[in-house]
């Protein structure tokens, strides 16, 4: 398989597969990431996958006796990467996310509709119809970067970012859609809100609802149901 290795500072290495985002590259990234974790290299601190690359942070304290820690890490990773033509990722989990669209929860729903020349109902229909792939998590704990947004929903970010966006807010920015796990400032167009907790730090096995590689779908719930579920999830 095609890849290149390069240092990321003096305590990490970056494996780059491509400069493109697509499903095949994503599967390779997830497959390789899983294999690296299975290998249990004692120098590996953690593996950070992105759209088309993986960073492996390593512990220099475990590599003090080698001439070049980077060379050793690069050699071991090459051996692994060259051992197969393609890497299979483990089966995707399917996650359904309830969303209360519009109203106070989605103050920009009408703006997204107007920008695309469709009705608010059509925005909800298109947003719930698609299946999305979580390519990676970043920006905030459990924040998914997903692919699969219908082009008819693409809307530029707000010219002035909001200072506070409530957790669970579902937004659109350009060709992307996503959910804010914690209260942060942000410039996304907010179309709704989920009562589900995307970040749950007390669950150390799965601290985030979503993981890279997941397939997700959104489904609409009523305002009443939103508050009921939000109460239950507290």
């Amino acid at each position: 398989m095609n890849y290149s290795l390069e240092p990321l500072g003096d305590q990490a290495i970056l494996i780059e597969f491509s400069q493109e985002v697509n499903e095949w590259i994503h599967e390779q990234v997830q497959g390789v990431k899983g294999r690296i974790e299975e290998m249990g290299y004692d120098w590996a601190i953690e593996v950070v996958p992105a759209f088309a690359s993986i960073a492996v942070h390593y512990d220099i304290r475990k590599l003090l006796t080698c001439q070049s820690p980077y060379d050793l890490v690069a050699k071991e990773l090459s051996l692994l990467l060259d051992s197969k033509k393609t890497f299979t990722k483990k089966a995707s989990r399917e996650i359904n996310i309830p969303v209360f669209y519009g109203g106070k929860a989605g103050p920009d729903l009408d703006e997204v509709a107007a920008h695309n020349g469709i009705s608010a109902e059509e925005v909800v229909e298109l947003h719930t119809k698609a299946e999305y792939t979580v390519y990676m998590l970043g920006f905030a704990p459990g924040f998914p970067y997903v692919g699969g947004l219908n082009e008819k929903l693409a809307t530029p970010r707000k010219s002035k970012p909001r200072l506070q966006i409530p957790p669970g807010s579902v937004g659109i920015a350009g060709q992307q859609t996503g959910v804010y796990p914690i209260e942060t400032p942000g410039g996304w167009q907010l179309i709704g809100q989920t009562p589900e907790a995307l970040f749950r730090p007390m669950n150390e096995e799965e601290p985030t609802l979503l993981q890279a590689g997941d397939k997700i779908r959104f489904y609409a719930i009523s305002e009443e149901e939103f508050y009921e579920r939000q109460e239950r999830n507290k």
């Binding site: 305590q11 400069q19 992105a50 690359s53």
Partner: peptide
């Protein structure tokens, strides 16, 4: 624009 990728302390 480049594709987002990992960063580290000191980047």
């Amino acid at each position: 624009e480049m594709l987002s990728e990992a960063v580290s302390f000191g980047t």
